[in-house]
């Protein structure tokens, strides 16, 4: 049962820069998909088209019965409620505490006024603490986010998206700013969320080895076009070089 479908999607920025050309794929519920490709190949644009932070120029996107491209303001809010998002730079409100940032995940579910004054129900707070416990952040709950390390901030980002009770989580370079050991912690959490909670995950990654290790499916993108779409064990070395438009020996993965 596909949860997300791209049908011939194209995106052109300012009528000149072509970011995506005729992208089509469909993702089933519960999949763990990694999108790889060089910088500027359109990875972030694909993710942002799904929750309408970016509007696709052509084609159709179906997410969970919603016609994303033609959604009105109210429908966009419904879509965004069900789609969590995690960012390379965490994008937290740094001056607020961890628990407040986690509760921000509920804003989409609240009325304008109770969102403005920040009134959260007891069950919501309870749920927030449960999520924090699961991610090992109980100690940090009342700390301000600017006191946290990068790995902890990213876990707060994950907690915030889980708070939405999403069907799909989009991860835009979730480990690009983290060291190898924290990267593993974050990837393990994401993988765990995918397996135990059945939440579909789509990740943009620069680390090909990480993508091959964790993802159940790889989408390779080169200058806005899909070059590879399939399981990691069928991704040939030559295809990786095709994705990154490189020759043998020019990639960091070749060294290892």
């Amino acid at each position: 049962m596909p949860i997300l479908e791209f049908k011939n999607v194209s995106k052109t920025y300012n009528n000149v820069t072509k970011a995506l050309t005729d992208i089509s794929f469909s993702i089933n519920s519960g999949e763990f998909v990694a999108i790889i490709g060089p910088s500027g190949s359109g990875k972030s644009t694909i993710l942002r088209c799904i929750n309408r932070l970016v509007d696709a120029t052509q084609g159709g996107i179906i997410f969970d019965e919603f016609d994303v491209c033609h959604a009105n303001k109210n429908e966009i809010r419904q879509i965004r409620k069900k789609v969590g998002m995690i960012f390379q730079h965490y994008n937290l409100v740094e001056r607020l505490s961890v628990i407040e940032n986690v509760l921000h995940g509920r804003l989409g579910h609240k009325s304008t006024i109770s969102g403005i004054i920040g009134r959260y129900t007891e069950p919501e707070k309870e749920q927030a603490f449960q999520i924090l416990e699961k991610l090992g952040l109980t100690e940090q709950a009342y700390k301000r986010c600017d006191e946290l390390s990068g790995g902890q901030k990213q876990r707060v980002g994950i907690a915030r998206s889980l708070m939405q009770e999403p069907n799909l989580i989009l991860c835009d370079e979730p480990i690009a700013s983290l060291d190898p050991s924290t990267s593993k912690v974050i990837m393990d959490h994401l993988s765990n969320i995918n397996k135990t909670m059945g939440i579909t995950c789509i990740l943009n990654l620069h680390q090909v080895d990480v993508a091959l290790k964790y993802a159940g499916r790889i989408i390779g993108l080169t200058s806005g076009k899909i070059v590879y779409d399939g399981p990691p064990n069928q991704l040939l070395k030559s295809t990786i070089h095709e994705i990154y438009q490189s020759n043998e020996g020019e990639l960091i993965t070749d060294v290892a």
Binding site: L53, R77, R80, L107, G108, G115, I116, G118, Q164
Partner: peptide, 25 residues
């Protein structure tokens, strides 16, 4: 800018973004 993007992505509306994102940050 960064936290506003995240709050928009989670479905918060304009006034919620202003009061929960812009003002505190």
């Amino acid at each position: 800018a960064s936290c506003v993007e995240a709050l928009h992505a989670s479905g918060a509306n304009y006034m919620q973004v202003v009061f929960r994102g812009i003002i505190p940050s």
